[in-house]
């Protein structure tokens, strides 16, 4: 009987890996620091996902159920890995609930942390209650409350979405594009226009990166069907005149400064490396790349690999990633992790 695969993190990537392993009869031990599985789509209260348009609680919830009901997956919730040692095929992990796990290999599906907008004070988050993040807007939808100004519960008449908050910004050491925010923002903009047809939605952008097939289904559709307005400007500051939020910047296409009143300002927050990555990197003895994400081995020769043999990685732990790709990488990592669970001799024959 081969040893199980240790999976750290029960978000889309970890759930996908556990399910893939169980599908071929391979045992796994899934450890998650939260009391419930599902990762950000569940804990952060995402609403309808891109690009399926399905509710996170339905589809990611189904992934959770599928794993929790599977006898081949041993789930440890509210638990972290304290120490990790050994060789490929023969690792030992100590959990902080006192349990010890013998594992053939490990998959790190430890995900990311949302950028904290407080680190860009000039854009008013934390100062004005009606400055919110994309995550908060997702929660407004998923809770069924709808989009309302937190200050007084009114329906906003004019909403500004600021892109690249916590992305593509040397000032705060975020030199990466968070990949998903353009598409998520155009999706949110359409949802706002759908819920509140009288509300005008403006997206302030540096570039629009609704990559691949999101071009027509999100960027074009938001303009053509939902009349969302895109303005090329990086906002200088968000202040208030006591009644409305005042957004200041330069409209670069007309070379004019702008000072425009808004009811609500939404920060399209980026994906930071998981705040625990320093600890994770040290416990599992894997290298982090220069921005603090878990470093990947060569895609061509060692897909899903890290700097340590037998330890694999999937999803947003390696950098900003979409949910769909995280799920795909979870399966890929499961395949790689199987290298150590199948007895070498049997595999050779």
């Amino acid at each position: 009987m081969s040893k199980p695969v240790l999976i750290v993190g029960g978000g889309p990537a970890g759930l996908s890996a556990a399910h893939a392993l169980a599908t071929v009869g391979q045992k796994s031990v899934l450890v998650d620091k939260q009391q419930t599985l599902g990762g950000h789509p569940i804990h952060s209260g995402y609403a309808k996902l891109v690009p399926s348009g399905e509710w996170a609680r339905d589809v990611i919830g189904a992934m959770v159920d599928r794993v929790e009901q599977n006898a081949l997956v041993e789930v440890h919730k509210g638990t972290t890995v304290k120490s990790f040692a050994g060789e490929p095929g023969n690792f030992t992990a100590e959990l902080d609930d006192g349990k010890s796990v013998e594992a053939a290999s490990t998959i790190l599906a430890t995900g990311f942390t949302h950028f904290d907008s407080i680190n860009k004070p000039e854009w008013g988050f934390g100062t004005y209650p009606d400055v919110v993040t994309t995550t908060q807007v997702e929660q407004m939808f998923s809770s069924g409350a709808g989009v309302r100004c937190p200050s007084d519960g009114r329906k906003p008449k004019r909403v500004a979405i600021l892109l690249c908050v916590g992305s593509r910004d040397r000032q705060i050491g975020r030199e990466w594009c968070s990949k998903i925010c353009c598409t998520v923002s155009s999706n949110i903009a359409m949802e706002i226009r759908e819920e509140l047809p009288d509300c005008h939605v403006y997206i302030y952008y540096m570039d629009i990166r609704t990559f691949g097939l999101y071009e027509d289904t999100y960027y074009w559709r938001s303009q053509e069907e939902f009349k969302v307005k895109y303005i090329k400007a990086r906002i200088a500051e968000v202040t208030s005149d006591g009644e409305k939020l005042i957004v200041k910047g330069e409209d670069t296409l007309v070379k004019r400064p702008i000072t425009i009143p808004f009811d609500m300002v939404v920060h399209a927050i980026g994906m930071d490396p998981n705040v625990d990555n320093m600890v994770i990197g040290s416990i599992f003895d894997v290298k982090l790349q220069k921005h603090g994400h878990i470093e990947k081995a060569s895609t061509y020769s060692a897909m899903s690999g890290t700097s340590r043999p037998g330890v694999y990685v999937a999803g947003a732990a390696t950098g900003p990633e979409t949910i769909d790709d995280s799920i795909a990488q979870g399966q890929a990592a499961a395949m790689a992790a199987m290298t150590h669970t199948v007895p070498v001799k049997a595999a050779a024959e």
Partner: peptide, 24 residues
């Protein structure tokens, strides 16, 4: 400084023949 937007303009132009696709 541009102080505000006149949000009716696009819809007005779009209502006249030829302006239908301006929002694209």
């Amino acid at each position: 400084v541009v102080k505000d937007y006149n949000e009716d303009m696009e819809a007005e132009i779009a209502a006249l023949p030829g302006g239908e696709f301006i929002h694209r």
